[in-house]
């Protein structure tokens, strides 16, 4: 049975998994689950994945959820080129550290972006409290600073100075691109003066071309619609 990926490309981890699959020519079917319509919480979807979260994959009846777990699994199952998730323990540990760090640090970026925009305009939820926005904002800014100043180096184009991307580059990269949903001034405030991050995203887009850009079509057009409607 063909591998299936369930997700919504508005969500950054779904994009990351999608890019990994495409960049490696793995045969799969994409099952669109609209977050906006709450389709991830329907009983049909919960029967497949009780956690009610996307993305998840079903590989020959085996359900895998959690984005970094899915990516690790795909690397092992399909014996993907070593740079995605290196076999060498020290290199692998570097990638693992980034994946773990992501959860409790950089992941605040999409939380901030969501609260600043989509929460009200797209998801029609009540506006968040200022304190929550501030909390996410602080964690996001600190994480982006760490990304710029210590995880990206002059040595190579990718995280921890690697010359080729790992699954952490894709996952963290798709988190940072979520900032396309911010208004221009805010985006400049968050990402301005961070040349290494800009260079890294460009390198990621180029190495995985055309997949990175294609998978970002949905979010980039949604961002444009939001910007147009706010004017």
């Amino acid at each position: 049975m063909t591998l299936k990926l369930y997700g919504d490309l508005l969500s950054q981890p779904a994009r990351a998994v999608d890019i990994l699959l495409r960049a490696n020519n793995i045969e799969y079917e994409f099952e669109y689950v609209s977050l906006r319509k709450g389709e991830h919480l329907t009983s049909a979807m919960k029967a497949l994945n009780p956690r009610g979260q996307v993305p998840f994959i079903i590989d020959d009846g085996f359900v895998v959820c959690e984005s970094s777990t899915i990516m690790r699994y795909l690397c092992q199952k399909y014996s993907l080129p070593d740079h995605w998730y290196p076999a060498d323990l020290k290199s692998r540990t570097g990638v693992d550290t980034l994946l773990d760090w992501y959860h409790s640090n950089l992941r605040a970026t999409s939380g901030y972006v969501f609260m600043k925009g989509m929460q009200v305009s797209v998801f029609k939820m009540s506006p968040p409290r200022e304190e929550y926005i501030k909390l996410k904002e602080d964690i996001m800014l600190m994480s982006l600073k760490i990304l710029e100043e210590s995880y990206l180096t002059e040595e190579g184009s990718f995280l921890l100075g690697a010359s080729q991307p790992s699954i952490a580059d894709v996952l963290l990269g798709c988190e940072v691109t979520q900032t396309c949903m911010l208004d221009e001034a805010d985006r400049e405030r968050v990402l301005g003066g961070k040349p290494k991050i800009a260079k890294w995203l460009a390198a990621l887009e180029e190495t995985t071309a055309p997949h990175f850009a294609e998978v970002h079509t949905t979010i980039r057009s949604t961002a444009k619609e939001m910007e147009a409607s706010s004017k």
Partner: peptide
């Protein structure tokens, strides 16, 4: 084993954003 390992990995990832 890839499947068994994925089950453990998913628990470790769940931990970070939930039980923590």
């Amino acid at each position: 084993d890839a499947r068994k390992r994925a089950r453990v990995d998913a628990l470790l990832d769940w931990y970070h954003t939930n039980l923590r």
